[in-house]
Amino acid sequence: MLVRLKFKKEGPIRFVGHLDMMRTFQKMFTRAGIPIAYSEGFNPHQIFSFASALAVGVSSESEYMDVKLTEDVAINVLIEAINLKAPEGIFFLDGVEIDNKETSAMASVVAATYRIEVLNSIITEDMLSAMMSQETLIIRKKNKKGKINDFDLRPGIINILLKDKHLIMTIANGSHFNIKPEMVLEKLLALNDLNYVRCDYRFHRVEIYHDHNGLRPLLEVKLGL
């Protein structure tokens, strides 16, 4: 049985990085005693994967993962068992059984929405509209081989707005096209001759989407597509 689970990550645990979250979840599943499937081979490991890595210091109300089980378990029973053993700040909200043929959460992610609290910096509507009216937003970005290339952010910014000192942006995420919220902030500030300082902001991920006739939260899948 393959399930997609949704959880939130809040509080101090937001300072635990992606690789450490993997290890933490492995142990959590073992403690919960759920019938999780293991890979074959010399070094069997639990079969689960996160939809998208969350950077250190970022909280989220909608993280997703796919988990393979060796037997059928009712979703609410599964979630209850996991929540009982989850570390503080991790809470499983919902889940859905998915078909074996369904594209994995990781491979299907196309976008994510972030809410960024502006703690110590000034960002105005005018700054946003000035940025969004540009044809291209070129930044210098290191590729995987370490070479620095020009990279256009503009097509990756799907939506951006300001709401009570919070910047809310929906941007491209995933393996095909990925931009990070701090890239957008950095560019926005650079256009106004300002410097980006990480701790002037608090990042929170609101939602992660795949493309199912438009952007849909990852949990919205139809069985047996």
């Binding site: 509080g11 101090p12 645990i13 300072f15 635990v16 142990k27 210091g57 570390p87």
Partner: peptide
């Protein structure tokens, strides 16, 4: 402060 240091999870407690 936590965002400036290596492995901030060293300082947050809250482990299982």
């Amino acid at each position: 402060v936590l965002l400036q240091v290596e492995k901030p999870a060293r300082y947050i407690g809250n482990e299982v």
